[in-house]
Structures are given as structure tokens and as C-alpha cells.
Design a protein around this nucleic acid. Structure first.
Length: 840
DNA sequence: ATCATAACGCTTTTT
DNA sequence: GCGTTATGAT
């Protein structure tokens, strides 16, 4: 047998044996697992099992190295070995340990694998599942987020860039606080230069690896005064962070990339270090992140990215879909594998989602399919207003729970957090247990920021921002005047606030407050000593006591929840200490800086989940409600008219629809109160993109439905002047070109001042009053109330049997207190609950 | 220093 | 409509 022939047969047998280890995967998934070498683009549709693939791919790397993807043959291998392999491949003999060892070609050491995700949650899931598959070796895999991987690199080398090794990480609110100060001192008007906008501009420049000088030059070149101003703010902002020994979220990546590109020895160290690089959610990466991963993978060239161009929904944060679209161009010799079989949703749901996303251009082109049957058609409900909408959702949930579903099987998705309010009311009214995800983050609560500021100030006393926050909190007689003096001295002498405070006696300006200042200084010094002696949790208690923070809080009467939060933070510390070998204050601070609220969703809670569509990415639920499917809300008013934005909204729609496993319900309201104004929106254009074969629309027997939808393409020229737009400045008018198929809308239809599109003028027919809803009894005010009295036995759809304990008359309604056999006492309104109850 | 009032302004936000 | 923030009065 000649050499080539031998190699070919050896490699083929080897691959087939390895493949057999992953036989529970489908063909495409297996290909993805076995393709280990070189650049690989994995286009993984929603619900196609991409995490499973990622995990198995890593398992393969560790078990067999490049065995499945090379024609190399080990030197020891001869005809005998080939014979064994081929017999095992054909199933004639079992693949025992020896045969499997013949399949190995340089198995990868686990610490040489870097698997990057975006969220802690995804990283945790990855780690957990890897541990389950591989045991202890999994611990050394670099399965972490972009940011934590960068922290790990920076902690080692950041001094090269002039930052202290013990740098502090600023979160977005810290950044904003610094920026506000900077803008004030540069006399830049906050109205003209909103801190958030300035920061996001800076973020975009950092993403292009541009510093303040580059921004200034760019401003010069474009003759853009505004940009030149922002460049000054950028410069000042960076200076402050650097002086404070702090970096913001963007810097974590930015500085790591700088480190790798400016320091050859660091670069080659990591390039030799990481043999395999994997990136999850690649569609959400930015240019800078591309730069980071392509550099890290630059040594071996083994980069595997997993993503779905149709699920890219973070453009506003700098994510660029380009990364995934041009992967094959950027990485020569790249292979592409598509995973299109969906294991999550039923056929109609996928049909609806495919129909919507098909309207986007510039896609890689994927079509999800399932072998699970068509299932139930998604439905559309048109409500009169947002209360009706919320009540409808609540009613459907209660009904379904009555048939045996759990509360946790439901998710209600909306475009913006502001929409959660009415839903919450409806859920409270109906006693539906729910949980709102998102909104206020735990670490954004003032009291948490306060106590963590103490911790930060102790850990890094150069951190002026944190010192500023705590210096007079609780009040210790160091007023704004004194603080101002300290800052002036600090700026003049190039010292940090803490350094000035330490030498307070030497400065005439601080004479009067010197006593209090040195007392503060001594307290912080004492804390620093204790932080080195005491275990972290004890130190935390000591700090709360010593600083007087707890005592001051105890005197206020509304502080209960704050005290709870502070205790909650302590259990965070305990958790950190448990899972970390060498817990340190700095380590804990790193962790909380990179921690988000999403990580705290408990699996075992039995609650209906309410969240934005963005927050829902990566999750799935048996029944999904997408509420507010109206133009101006979804797609949002700010994106209508901007083709790129519209495509992003459409992807968001695709994400939302593909969260559903079996049931999908869309709801819209004919009129809705938003930002204190009532508006009438058109049915979302996305709904019109779903063909009737995949969407059950309300029967067209009612004029209400007709009029609601007819304006979609009807008098849109006049009707486009919906509310909300009129408050924008001229620069935004161009959005009125519509989404490309709407025709030009003269800008003078945006009437200034009040809400001057008049419904009566625009609508050819008045909107009829509420119609009787079919199927779901949403009670109208005219509906007769059931009569109940104390002692009556009732049966409730969701809560089961119970006895009425109390009836309190209320105007047009009654408050019931019912003791249910299974779920205990509940307070319900007769009007709402009556529809789900009968007397027994 | 703490409260009250007015004024604003408002997608989405993995880190 | 509501929550945050700036400002001024006590």
C-alpha cells in the first residue's frame, strides 16, 4: 500500500471512530465538532443546539486533539494499527481505550483552550456543562466572558501601559459620574452634551482603537466643532481614570488590544499559549473584539466562531454584523457550517419567524426547520388599550395554568421596560406570580454603591470617585466647601484626594477641617489594615460598623429594603468566598464589577417572566407573549425610517418569536397611553410580514379590526404624524422616508407643539367600541357580577377549590379574600377573578 | 442637611 | 405617567 493511500485510510477510519463518540448529534453538528483546525464559522440558528456543539467540540479537542481533522499519521502506526482502526470503524470490534488512543493527535491541554462568551450566565453554563462532560480537567479551560478574560490578561501586564496592577473597574454609572464632572469642569452644557451620548461617542472611537488625539484630529479634519469638544472631554476623562487607577468596561478590551499590539512579547506569549479559540455569539462582537480574538488566535489560527447573523441585536452597543458576514474574507481558508435544524419550536412558529426575517437583506441566508410538526398557530390579539391587552395576557395565562401548565412556562416580552407597568398591575390584580427581569440592577442601588465604594476606596485609595462618594456619607462634617478645597489642592499638586487628606494639616485652606479629615484618614487606614487581617465577610461587618454607615441607615425609617440589600451583599461575599480558592477584596470587587442582574434569575422560581426582547435572547419558554406589536413601539419610533435600524428591529422580532416552544401570542392595542399621552398606532409592519398560514388573526367580523389594520397602507401620509415625533429636531426628519416601501412623507406633517394629528380627521371610520371577545371572557364593566358571600365554596381555574373568607364591597366591584386548598389565601377582585371562578 | 417642588425627558444595554 | 434630578427654602 502506498503512503498516500495508507494515510487516507488511516485518517478516514480515525475520523469515523471519533465521530461515533458524538453519534447523538445530527450530521451538521457532528461536522462542526470534528472540524477542529483552522478558521471555522458556525452559523447556528435559534434553538439549533449550538451550546451542545460548542461543548462537544471542546470535548473532542481534549480527547483527540486534531485527530478528526488531519491526515497526519503518527510515526508508530503501521498496517496493524490501521487494521484495528478499520475494524473498529466498521463496528466489528469495540473501540476500546487503546484504539481510541490511536485516534489521538496531540490532545489539547485544557488550559490552552479559550472559550469566550458575552455573559456571565453563558460562561457559567459552559463551565458547568464542560465539568459534567469532562470532570476536573474542565476547570482549567478559559471559559469566560470577554471582559473577565481581559481582566485576567491585564492583571498581569497592565503596568506596561502605566496603570497599576491593582486597577479598579468602573461600571457604566461610575463612568457617567466621572463624565458629568468632566463636562461641568469643561463648561460643557449637559443639554448639548448629554454624558451618555458623549460616552457612547468615546466608546465608538475606542472601538476603532482611537484615543483622544485621534478624535481631535478627526474633528479637525471634518471641521466638526462638536467632536473636538468631545475629544477634550475624552482626554480629560481618560486622564482621570488613569489617575484614579481605574478602567471602564471599554478599556478592558481596548487596553488589552493595545497591550497585544504594542508589546510583541506579550502578543507572542498569548499566541503560543492559546491553541484553540472559540467565540460564542459572534454576531454581537464589535470591531475591537474582532481584533482581540483574531490576535489571540493568530498563533495557531484555530478560531471557531459561533453565531447567528439574524440574531444580531446590539448594534447600538457597537456590535457589527459585518464580523460574521465577512468572516470568510477575514480568515483565509475558513470553513462554514450551518446549523438549521431547530429543536425548540414547532413548525408554525418557525414559519412565522422565517417569514419575518426573510425581509432583511444582507443575510447569510438560513432557514430554520423542524421535524416536530406544525403545532399550534401563533395568534394575534387586538386589544382596545393597554389595560385590555394586559388583562388578556393575564386571562390566557390563568386559563392555561388551569389546564396544567406552570407559571414559569410563560414569558411576556416587550420592546421597552416602560411597558411592564400595566402588565404588572394586571398580574397583581389577578394574583399571578411574576418576576420582572432587568430594569434596576442590584449593584446600582445607592446603598450598594455606597458600601462597595468603601470597599473600593480601601482597596485602591487613589480612586477619587469612590472617595468622593463616601467622604461625607454618612455625614461627618466634611461639607462641599471642604471637598472643593481638597480637589483643588489635589489638582494643583497632582495628588489623589486621599493623599491630600492625609496631609491635611499642611494646607492652610484645610486648617479648619483638618481634625475631621485626619479622623477620616485614620479610619480608612485602619480599614485597610483590617482588610488584610480579617476574612472578607468579617471585614465587611467591621467596615459597616466602623464607618457608621449601618448606624446612620438604621435611624431612617424607610431603610428596610436597603438594609436587606446590604445583607444580600454579604451573602454575595459568602458565595464568592466559597467558590474561590484565595478570596481577596480585589478579587471580589472584580467579580461584582462584571456581574449583572441577569445572572440572578433562579431556575426554580415558579413565576411568569416579564422582560424586554433583548433580555430574552438565549432563553426559551413553552408559551411566549409578545406585547405591543405596533409601529412606533415595535419597531420603535426611532428606528422607523432608518433602514439599518429597521433591519435590527426585524432581527429583534425574529429573536422574540423564536423564544417560543409551543405557543406564541402577539398582542397589539388600538390605543395606548405612552409617556402620558394617548396615541393610536398601526399594527406592527412585522405582523403583516407573517402570512396567514402561520398566524391566526382575529376574525375580520369587527370594524375595529379592519380600521386598525387598514391604515397600515392606507392614508399613511397623513397618519404618519404620530405622536412622539414632533418633539424631535430637524435632524431626524429624514426618517420620514419610511422603511423603503412607504413612499415619501412630507416633513411638514410633523406638527409642532401639541398632538395635532386628529383621530377624527384621519380615520375615515370611528373606532367602534369594544367587541365581545371570543373564547376568553374578558369582562366588560357591563358584565353582571357573580354574587358571592362569605362561606361560599368556589372553584378557580388556576388556584383550584377554596372558600370565601371575606367580601368587601367596592365601587362597582368587590374585594374577595379566599382561602384556597392548595395555594393558601389570596385577595382577588371579583370583577377580574369572577371570570375564572365558579361557585360550587 | 434635608426636604419639597418643579422640570425634564423618555429604546434596547450581555460587560 | 413616572421616576430621576436640579434647585431653592428651611
Amino acid at each position: 500500500m502506498d503512503k498516500t493511500e495508507f494515510r487516507k485510510r488511516y485518517a478516514a477510519a480515525r475520523r469515523s471512530i471519533i465521530r461515533n463518540d458524538f453519534k447523538e448529534l445530527n450530521n451538521m453538528q457532528q461536522e462542526a465538532v470534528l472540524t477542529t483546525e483552522g478558521p471555522l464559522l458556525l452559523l447556528a440558528g435559534a434553538g439549533s443546539g449550538k451550546t451542545t456543539v460548542l461543548i462537544n467540540r471542546i470535548v473532542n479537542l481534549i480527547r483527540y486533539g486534531r485527530g478528526s481533522d488531519t491526515t497526519e499519521v503518527p510515526e508508530y502506526a503501521g498496517e496493524k494499527e490501521l487494521c484495528l482502526l478499520e475494524e473498529a470503524a466498521e463496528g466489528k470490534i469495540p473501540a476500546d481505550d487503546y484504539i481510541r488512543s490511536l485516534c489521538q493527535v496531540e490532545p489539547a491541554e485544557s488550559w490552552r483552550i479559550l472559550a469566550i462568551t458575552f455573559t456571565n450566565k453563558a460562561a457559567e453554563e459552559l463551565k458547568g456543562r464542560l465539568r459534567a462532560a469532562l470532570g476536573d480537567v474542565a476547570t482549567d479551560i478559559w471559559a469566560m466572558t470577554f471582559h473577565s478574560a481581559c481582566v485576567r490578561i491585564l492583571r498581569r501586564y497592565i503596568e506596561l501601559l502605566g496603570y497599576p496592577r491593582s486597577f479598579t473597574i468602573y461600571d457604566s454609572s461610575d463612568s457617567q459620574a466621572v463624565m458629568k464632572r468632566v463636562l461641568k469642569e469643561l463648561d460643557m452644557d449637559e443639554k448639548q452634551f448629554p454624558p451618555r451620548a458623549v460616552l457612547s461617542q468615546i466608546s465608538r472611537f475606542k472601538d476603532g482603537l482611537m484615543g483622544p488625539e485621534d478624535m481631535a484630529a478627526e474633528g479637525e479634519k471634518r471641521g466638526d466643532m462638536r467632536l473636538r469638544h468631545i475629544a477634550r472631554a475624552y482626554e480629560e476623562y481618560e486622564k482621570r481614570l488613569k489617575n484614579a487607577g481605574a478602567v471602564d468596561f471599554d478599556d478592558l478590551i481596548f487596553l488589552t488590544v493595545r497591550l497585544l499590539s504594542e508589546y510583541e512579547e506579550v502578543r507572542s506569549y498569548y499566541q503560543k499559549f492559546f491553541r484553540y479559540v472559540l467565540v460564542d455569539e459572534y454576531q454581537d462582537t464589535s470591531k475591537l473584539q474582532y481584533k482581540l480574538v483574531s490576535t489571540l488566535a493568530g498563533g495557531y489560527g484555530n478560531i471557531c466562531v459561533v453565531g447567528d447573523d439574524d440574531q444580531s441585536i446590539y448594534r447600538f452597543r457597537g456590535a457589527t454584523i459585518e464580523n460574521i458576514l465577512s468572516f470568510e474574507k477575514q480568515f483565509e481558508g475558513a470553513r462554514t457550517i450551518k446549523l438549521e435544524q431547530n429543536y425548540r419550536s414547532t413548525g408554525h412558529i418557525l414559519g412565522a419567524a422565517n417569514a419575518v426575517i426573510r425581509h432583511n437583506s444582507g443575510r447569510k441566508g438560513k432557514e430554520l426547520w423542524t421535524d416536530r410538526g406544525q403545532g399550534e398557530k401563533p395568534t394575534l390579539y387586538i386589544a382596545d388599550n393597554e389595560d385590555d391587552e394586559a388583562q388578556y395576557v393575564a386571562a390566557r395565562i390563568i386559563y392555561a395554568v388551569g389546564t396544567g401548565m406552570n407559571w414559569r412556562d410563560f414569558a411576556v416580552l416587550y420592546r421597552m421596560n416602560a411597558q411592564s407597568n400595566r402588565l404588572e398591575y394586571a398580574f397583581k390584580r389577578n394574583n399571578i406570580p411574576y418576576k420582572v427581569v432587568g430594569g434596576m440592577r442590584f449593584f446600582d442601588h445607592a446603598e450598594i454603591k455606597d458600601v462597595t465604594s468603601y470597599l473600593s476606596a480601601v482597596s485602591n485609595s487613589g480612586d477619587d470617585l469612590r472617595v468622593l462618594r463616601i467622604i461625607n456619607n454618612p455625614p461627618r462634617g466634611i461639607g462641599p466647601g471642604t471637598v472643593e478645597n481638597i480637589r483643588e489642592i489635589g489638582a494643583r499638586e497632582g495628588l489623589s484626594l486621599m493623599e491630600v487628606i492625609g496631609g491635611a494639616g499642611e494646607y492652610p485652606a484645610l486648617k479648619r477641617s483638618a481634625g475631621k479629615l485626619s479622623e477620616f484618614y485614620r479610619m480608612i487606614s485602619d480599614l485597610r489594615e483590617k482588610s488584610e487581617e480579617l476574612p472578607l465577610d468579617e471585614f465587611y461587618d467591621y467596615m459597616l460598623d466602623k464607618t457608621g454607615y449601618m448606624a446612620a441607615l438604621g435611624e431612617k425609617d424607610d431603610a428596610l429594603s436597603r438594609i436587606d440589600n446590604i445583607k444580600e451583599l454579604k451573602s454575595n461575599i459568602a458565595g464568592y468566598m466559597e467558590r474561590t480558592e484565595e478570596p481577596t477584596l480585589a478579587g471580589f470587587l472584580d467579580e461584582i464589577a462584571l456581574y449583572s442582574d441577569l445572572d440572578s434569575v433562579e431556575e426554580d422560581d415558579n413565576n411568569v417572566i416579564l422582560m424586554t426582547m433583548h433580555a430574552a435572547k438565549g432563553l426559551e419558554f413553552p408559551w411566549v407573549f409578545v406585547v405591543g406589536v405596533e409601529d412606533n413601539i415595535f419597531p420603535s419610533s426611532r428606528s422607523i425610517g432608518e433602514p439599518e435600524e429597521m433591519e435590527e428591529e426585524r432581527r429583534l422580532c425574529y429573536v422574540a418569536l423564536t423564544r417560543a416552544r409551543q405557543h406564541l401570542t402577539l398582542t397589539a392595542a388600538k390605543r395606548r397611553m405612552l409617556f402620558g399621552r394617548t396615541s393610536a398606532n398601526l399594527l406592527s409592519r412585522f405582523v403583516d410580514e407573517i402570512p396567514p398560514e402561520h398566524l391566526e388573526r382575529p376574525e375580520t367580523d369587527g370594524e375595529g379590526y379592519d380600521s386598525f389594520r387598514e391604515y397600515r397602507y392606507g392614508d399613511s401620509d397623513t397618519y404618519s404624524a404620530y405622536g412622539g415625533r414632533n418633539t424631535y429636531s430637524g435632524a431626524r426628519y429624514r426618517r420620514d422616508y419610511g422603511d423603503g416601501d412607504e413612499g415619501y412623507v412630507p416633513k411638514n406633517t410633523v406638527t409642532g407643539g401639541g398632538y395635532s394629528y386628529k383621530n377624527s380627521e384621519v380615520r375615515r371610520r370611528p373606532i367602534p367600541k369594544a367587541k365581545e371577545k371570543k373564547e376568553i371572557p374578558v369582562q366588560s364593566s357591563a358584565a353582571p357580577l357573580m354574587s358571592l358571600s362569605v362561606g361560599d365554596m368556589v372553584e378557580h381555574r388556576a388556584f383550584g377549590k377554596g372558600q370565601v373568607l371575606e367580601v368587601t364591597a367596592m365601587p362597582g366591584d368587590a374585594l374577595l379574600k379566599i382561602s384556597f386548598d392548595n395555594v393558601g389565601e389570596k385577595r382577588l377582585m371579583l370583577k377580574t377573578a369572577g371570570a375564572f371562578m365558579k361557585k360550587v
